[in-house]
Design a protein around this nucleic acid. Sequence first.
DNA 1: AAATATTTGTCCGTATGTATC
DNA 2: TGATACATACGGACAAATATT
Lengths: 231, 231
Amino acid sequence: MKNREHGEKLYISAFREIRSYIILNGLKEGDLLPTEKTLCERLGVSRNVLREAIKSMELMGMVRACPGRGTEICRFSMDFVFQNVLFFHVGDDDPSVREMFTIRRILEMSYAPMAFAALDQSGIRALEDCVRRMRKSYEETGYFGEEDREFHLLLFRPLNNPVLYSLLDAIWGVDVTFQLEQKKPHLSDSVVKHEKIVEALKKGDPAAFEEAMLRHFSSGKYLEKSGYAEY
Amino acid sequence: MKNREHGEKLYISAFREIRSYIILNGLKEGDLLPTEKTLCERLGVSRNVLREAIKSMELMGMVRACPGRGTEICRFSMDFVFQNVLFFHVGDDDPSVREMFTIRRILEMSYAPMAFAALDQSGIRALEDCVRRMRKSYEETGYFGEEDREFHLLLFRPLNNPVLYSLLDAIWGVDVTFQLEQKKPHLSDSVVKHEKIVEALKKGDPAAFEEAMLRHFSSGKYLEKSGYAEY
DNA sequence: AAATATTTGTCCGTATGTATC
DNA sequence: TGATACATACGGACAAATATT
């Protein structure tokens, strides 16, 4: 194995190499990976090590191995990871969770002006519909994690910036998983603040939009207790 | 293997069983899993199959296998999530890669004041040493990607912010894997700009530090051509 | 400090089931 | 139908890292 970082386990190097192979060769959904035998020879690892790498990929939904056929590339999402990774006593007070939200806040506020410019009427209508469902969901179940996630993704979708979008989506994925384990307090405020954002959008007032975004983020307990960044 | 769903691959059943074991027995971070041998016997699978399951867990950051010791349950981290989310956008197009650097710039500039406050003398000395090696590496090989990565990670390590760190590290990982730095022009400038950052740190001048950081980012081709955010 | 035991890392060989031609 | 290619699964062996005595 050539590109092996110091002290790194073999199967991890193999995983990285195969992942790079997929990217560099532009393999898409449905394409086949080289056979185990070929990959073993090319990477210079044993079959067991190679399989540890490939089974990891398969378990997470990156590929699907079919006996007699080969190993096929699949569309990849982080859903499996979020559903199966272990979460131990991570709550709102956990520093890592606060850091995650700080980063999300920084990114969303940095891109907010562009999002405002990129949103058209249909995008705004979608947001309006989303907060309506958010309020409904809150009144019925006291919880609206999914709608919250959807709202923020709708906000930045028109930017057509896949990297930012995936990153925010991933952070929200973790957030929603957290929320399922333990409900957050002071949710009623939060619905109103989302409604204010939509109001500003409908008026077409960029300053009001930024203000509403800021206020939205300054709700909750993340900001005041944060030991790190204050945007 | 008892609890095996119809048609399910063995290693996947093993994965589920081990995960259940962790949850049902209330294993927390730092606790050790039973040994491979024990688990093989209990689950009734071969060592290879068991390892495919455990290596999958390790790759996702759920456990860490230590030779001579055992397999330890880990705390949740975003390392895996960030690395893979970003990685799969590299093949897309150039704008996606530029966007990663924009995001890095946004985050680094947002956290710069805190990094400045958190750096102590030994941290500054480490940075000083790093730019020295950077210059040497540039003069000898014309390339200093590794030192560049090290410099920026050293800058933010004192913040002790694992989420930020793993995101920045993931972006640098993309950079190093595809050696994007090599394609950048004005590398000689870049060394000087890193030296200026260290100078400001040594003087203890926060304004000069921010100025040097900003100038450092305004070099390279990513800024002027970016179709998205301008910080 | 040194020897020993434990545990994971890595490799190899073999047999079996399944899809493709 | 048969032949081939491929992944699935098992078992054994030794190396390397760590813990224990």
